[in-house]
Write a protein that binds this DNA or RNA. Structure first.
Lengths: 341, 341
DNA sequence: ACCTGGCACTCGGTAGGATCGAGTGCCAAT
DNA sequence: ATTGGCACTCGATCCTACCGAGTGCCAGGT
């Protein structure tokens, strides 16, 4: 693909550009270790790299900047060679975070997104594991006093799903009473407890019309709301996006995307499905408003093979080794932590 | 305080500055309707207004810009005179939103924050009503399979509280079984159902040690986590903050504040307590990182006298009449909607 | 055949200077 | 007390010159 020297030069350019955000010239590259050549030679090589699409010049007689393809080569060559390490302070931070972590899953995931953001100084995203595989530990129908009731399901992974529904009304126009609600509740519990969310099945008729009606709407509520497709999204450190770009318009655009949870979830899931861990630029992740951004993902494997997702979003010129290391270690420890419950 | 002409001039300056974001000069003011004077007179008046702290000049021989004090006078004079109206399109949007609104409270509040943000083109905040006043409709302890269990409480306002806890262990080191969990669950339900969250009281001893231990830790979990003080925070349209300022550093700072839920909640609650509906600049809202920002709040009164909060956050040079109108109508309709359940 | 030092050239960025014009402050006249 | 007039200020804009990092290319060396 690229001979050793070209690769070394390209790596040097990427590294320096990531650090300085300035176009890098042949002299700097020639001086950098790992490259054994005069600036003139480097110039020649760089012009070839440019012709091959790894570098661009912002304008004639300026240094070179990596293209998305350039970054891609960089991270690929990185991937093989063993990623970077977190510095000791960060390692300690991660460790103390996960030993102190406790309480609600949601809360912990939210905190995790902030941790990851702090580690990388970029925006982090954490997506809770979907609960398709989880089994139902308890279901309950609770009347709320008015015409409305709530179906509450507790899942084996500790999450709680709830749906509101309208109580069926009797012929005289009044909603059904506590007795009917209780009957439906126990019957629902009897038939659904232990099943997985994915396969709820049917609850056989009781013979009592009102109870059946309530059961039906409960089931509808439970299965209906499910289409959210995967768990909640936690975005941490969105404000750090403002460090990444100096055009306020760009910041706006990126933040706009981050507000659309659906888009974010789809993006990360899609990348995982494609087996990518890092997507560089719009060509790879497919979101034109995120041109100039890279996305980094990792699955979080807990028990039961259910997987959550974590990722970070930053400018294409981000510190990939550091970010990859952070994502890797956090995904690993978070997975372990979830497994423990 | 200010004679009529000065007031009119000040108003004219504020209005034009809000619209154009440019320092406004005496000629523009003289030409604006509501002011009957030559530009020379306006100049004299404006220099008085500047001496009194209502206006500033960014630099000599430039137009004037309102100070926070100037904005304050403006919104006060507005307040008396009857705020602005939403335009018909926006009215329609609000109406259709609240007729279509359905489902989970949380989901609706989140959507509402986005609605409010869309209406005002600023960042909106919605805080769910605290559930101190709500009564408990159902409590349940559910074992999760490992050493952990979940206490789930359904409240009369439709919200669900859950806390994880460690199951007590028997002498032989194994966690207590389903029987104990069930016993604790029913006992808990018996004693707490119907009470308000604020006054949970004590659950009398059962005589069985394991059950008592589980009851105790359940109660600790229920009362302990309560300190979150008020409901969840929903921030809508944070990305619009990037429209308000063109210094990326400012945007960063403001977004940073928005990420600290506690600060946001405290801010809005504090303003409500002080009886303010609009706080202009750091002097009034007290957050130096939000210098150059105004905060607009309104309570959302639902049933039971429990109140949520909505607010918007924007640059001091925001369209106050429009924003006030939007906040007012949304708070009103949201309150009504919540009351209905 | 490949590197490398040397050299002319390019072009963005910065600094200095001239000009423009919106806006002010002040004064004298009404 | 108000207003027209006038000199003055000062940011914004434009132009020019210049600097320097960087390039492309060539000719000489290994």
């Amino acid at each position: 693909m690229l001979d050793d020297r070209k690769a070394a030069i390209l790596r040097a350019v990427v590294e320096e550009y990531i650090e300085t955000a300035q176009p890098v010239g042949s002299q700097h590259v020639a001086r950098s270790r790992g490259v054994q050549a005069s600036s003139a030679t480097v110039r020649n090589e760089m012009s070839v790299l440019e012709r091959d699409g790894y570098l661009v010049q912002p304008h004639t007689s300026a240094g070179r900047i990596p293209t998305d393809k350039g970054y891609r080569f960089f991270v690929d060559s990185l991937h093989g060679w063993g990623a970077g390490q977190l510095n000791p302070g960060q390692r300690a931070e991660v460790k103390s975070f996960f030993t102190k972590a406790h309480g609600e899953l949601e809360h912990m995931l939210s905190e995790t997104s902030q941790l990851l953001s702090r580690l990388t100084d970029h925006t982090a995203v954490v997506i809770a594991p979907p609960h398709e595989a989880a089994s139902i530990r308890s279901v309950q129908v609770v009347g709320l006093g008015g015409r409305t009731a709530l179906v509450v399901a507790v899942l084996s992974n500790g999450s709680v799903e709830k749906r509101t529904l309208e109580l069926p009304v009797r012929d005289d126009g009044t909603p059904v009473g506590d007795g009917v609600v209780a009957a439906a509740s126990t019957r629902l519990a009897g038939h659904l407890t232990g099943r997985t969310v994915a396969q709820l099945g049917e609850v056989p008729s009781t013979g009592e019309a009102m109870v059946d009606a309530l059961l039906a709407s409960s089931m509808r509520a439970l299965t209906g709301g499910q289409d959210e497709e995967g768990g909640a999204v936690f975005v941490g450190g969105a404000s750090r996006m403002a460090n990444a770009f100096d055009a306020v318009a760009t910041v706006r655009q990126v933040l706009g995307i981050l507000e659309e949870q659906f888009v974010v979830v789809t993006l990360l899931r899609d990348l995982l499905d494609r087996g990518l861990t890092v997507a560089i630029g719009a060509d790879e992740h497919g979101l034109t408003p995120l041109a100039g951004c890279s996305v980094l993902v990792a699955p979080v494997r807990g028990a039961d093979g259910q997987t959550g997702t974590i990722g970070i979003l930053g400018p294409t010129r981000m510190n990939y080794p550091q970010a990859l290391a952070a994502v890797a270690v956090v995904s690993q420890r978070l997975g372990r932590r979830i497994e423990e419950g």
